[in-house]
Amino acid sequence: MTIPVIRLRGVTKSYGSGEGAFHALRGVDLEVTAGSFVAVMGPSGSGKSTLMNILGCLDVPTGGSFLFKDVAIERLSKDERAILRRRHLGFVFQGFNLLARTTAIENVELPLIYRRDEHHRRRAAAAAALDRVGLSDWAQHTPAELSGGQQQRVAIARAIVTAPAVLLADEPTGNLDSQRSTEIMTLLTELNQASGITILMVTHEPDMAAYAQMTVYVRDGLIDRIERADGTGSTAC
């Protein structure tokens, strides 16, 4: 039941070398079980962005090991990580990051294009994903014609269209008002519970973190403490 989909062991990340080196992560241990909803909080400069980049396989650790579904990420090439991302990971960004002047459905099917899915399957899956986020009627609209909340829904549809194991959300509600934020969080929770997608979410707002089952606090490149929604807390080792 509690198989870890992500396992970090003593992960460090440094930029530069020698005296001037900057250590963004200084030995992070973390296990995330499949199907969990994890919030990552911490002040800016704490290393949480670096941590998310590594968890999203966009970056590799300088030291330590990162097992994703028993694959050692630090040994993969740039392209192998890209292939792993399009198979198992979905991304939702604070700024939505949709392609401008591109319809919602074309935005959503983009990961499938890179996966070389054929046209019909691609369109069907993209339509299904849009339906999932409640935007079936907006498939032919471009981002400029959609509200912020709708754009973020399209971004979520794009992230889940590949049926990923893990969805990484970087402050998904950062650009939205509280009502839209609630809607997005409800959608993410629903995806987590109904589809069993593991969600890793960076946030500033405790309100949003409250939707997660587990909140990881990062401070000075280390995990400060982990709080679980069921009340059990733990400090990092």
Partner: peptide, 16 residues
């Protein structure tokens, strides 16, 4: 550049 970043994040390899 940002668009290229998005494409890479969602799984485009360098050759794509």
């Amino acid at each position: 550049t940002r668009e290229i970043g998005i494409r890479m994040a969602i799984g485009a390899v360098a050759q794509d």
